[in-house]
Write a protein that binds this DNA or RNA. Structure first.
Lengths: 335, 335
DNA sequence: GTTCACTATTGAATCGATTCATACAAGGGA
DNA sequence: TCCCTTGTATGAATCGATTCAATAGTGAAC
């Protein structure tokens, strides 16, 4: 097809070895020949064939990242952070989307293996740890993202959801809440269970009862639904503060409250989780527990490169970020 | 490193050619040998080396997609649609992000060339059409996404922004607006210019004056800023309906109006553009002009595969979708 | 029994960049 | 002058899957 190193070599009247040197170790080549080769490359429109390079070297200069859901801004932000690091290391970055489907997850892992990626960043869906260990032993390491590695065999970067839940409820109680509530589910999701556990602990420490509204998922509609339920409660039994397990839910609650004339934060204070962009942008800006999303991706990628570049000296680490409360209108109270 | 076809062939006691046949044309191999080879593959944990395959065949089974901004839900949705089609064709899908930076765009095109992707889906930032034509002539076709191909040399899939702008203003006027306004900018962005042109045409057709508030970008903060300006106007000069060039701006306007006690839609009706998820989810659900995002990606990918599979018979097409108005609370009026 | 048609299998050649042992040249020191 | 070092350049061998011309094997037809 296109021109190859041979063609370049012929035109520049040097050997293929010299062309390769110009491409990879230009300082080892006489300026004069270097110029000749570069001129030939430009003239022919030569583009290095990455397949040939990686066939010879045994691995492609690329990272694979497999996320649960590209439509979720959390993951795109994490990916952005990781991509920057990959670029620093002159690696290409393949972003794939398992859509929370274990079959797709397997298919993409197959693909990554065939492509001989140098390493993988993954938010696991199915039961893939064994497979990841096998791949690791074949020289393809991985780092778990947004999930604490149960095993000692991986690095992971995650967030302390218990601390986040605790901070939310402490903040609401400090603002005067006497009947706080938690909204979220299902509790089979580790994140939800942890956030709930933190909330419960904070309430208990303050000697306050925590109402719980369990939801089947974390979507907007569920939030609106629970908001309607709360709106129907007698004033005396109605929570005066709500911590929602994520911002989508919180926005649903907010929409319902607004529609039903329940004032936020005066009647009900509200805190979400994730601090997505739209938390700032809702008509009443939403307080939320923020996670350092880009930083999560960045640290994960750095850990991965550490393992890639130094497979034996490398020690697995579990990085756990503590999320931070961002206070906005929805929970700001005079008291 | 890992086992190769040779190792598999040795273990299964067949030739490498037969192993290759099992992998690529299993029906041409005797069931007995096929089983032996498959057993050997399983036993050795053989994984096909994609680099070797594509070196031999001259191209990798993959598509590249280069978007303006992965953080924008519009593009992730388009990407999702395209990815599905790529998966159908058993191609892998490399999603890259130019972040509206012409230098990054060039770098990723370099990468795609080196990887010998079979085709490219791109939302161009800089002045890349010439380069894309050159790549096309070297056998790597591309399809322009969200941008009408100026030249006849490409397929493109885009949206009729003029029609969208027209629909927005027609709807507002039909709802009783007498002093409609357009908010958006910069007009150097084709999309913005088109939406504005449509709005202007509709207003003229109805014999109504259109106020214009030009903004330096399409971000939330700008919307809030213009919202504050509008709030400061005397009642008699204040627009009674606003069409914002995208939903981010519209949400900014909405937040400002809410904060300043301007009722939506009673005092000011509001329509955005893009119909992002959060349009439904704001406290007052936002009317918006919706684009078939996944479908855009899907059609673009199909055009690309048509050109890949049939480079000579292929005829370039410009697909233009007409966007649709979705009416919600923010512009619903008794009249 | 010979020829023809057809299928299943083989293995050397191939893709293109990189590597590395080897060769060569130029200069410095003795 | 000879030897050694240092700096460059060379090109055959290599990575692993695929291809394809050649060959072996099978059975049908005459």
């Amino acid at each position: 097809m296109g021109p190859s190193v041979k063609d370049v070599a012929a035109l520049a009247q040097v050997s293929v070895g010299t062309v390769s040197n110009v491409l990879n170790r230009p300082e080892q080549v006489t300026p004069e020949k270097r110029k000749r080769v570069q001129a030939a490359i430009a003239q022919l429109g030569f583009v290095r064939n990455e397949s040939a390079r990686s066939l010879r070297s045994g691995s492609s200069r690329s990272l694979g990242m497999l996320v649960l859901d590209v439509r979720n801004p959390f993951f795109t932000d994490v990916a952005l952070g990781a991509e920057d690091v990959a670029e620093e290391h002159k690696h290409s970055f393949i972003l794939a989307n398992s859509s929370e489907d274990a079959r797709r997850e397997q298919a993409y892992l197959d693909l990554f293996e065939e492509q001989r990626v140098q390493g993988i960043l993954i938010t696991p869906v199915g039961d893939v740890l064994q497979r990841l260990e096998a791949m690791q032993s074949r020289g393809i390491p991985s780092v778990l993202v947004d999930r604490l590695a149960g095993s000692e065999n991986f690095c992971s970067v995650s967030v302390d959801d218990v601390a986040g839940g605790r901070a939310a409820i402490e903040h609401l109680i400090a603002g005067g809440a006497e009947r706080p509530a938690f909204v979220g589910g299902p509790f089979t999701l580790q994140q939800v269970a942890d956030r709930h556990a933190g909330a419960l602990a904070a309430a208990a420490a303050a000697g306050v009862q925590l109402q719980v509204f369990e939801t089947p998922n974390l979507k907007f509609e569920r939030g609106r639904h629970v908001g309607d339920l709360i709106g129907d409660l007698r004033q005396s039994r109605r929570p005066d503060a709500v911590f929602a397990a994520n911002d989508q839910l919180a926005l649903g609650l907010l929409q319902s409250f607004t529609a039903n004339g329940i004032r936020v934060p005066d009647d009900v204070a509200l805190v979400g989780f994730d601090d997505i962009d739209f938390a700032t942008q809702s008509s009443i800006p939403l307080s939320s527990i923020g996670q350092p999303r880009q930083l999560i991706g960045e640290r994960a990628a750095r850990l991965l490169f550490d393992e890639i570049e130094n497979p034996h000296g490398h020690e697995h680490q579990q990085i756990v970020f503590t999320p931070e409360l961002v206070v906005r209108e929805s929970s700001r109270r005079p008291g």
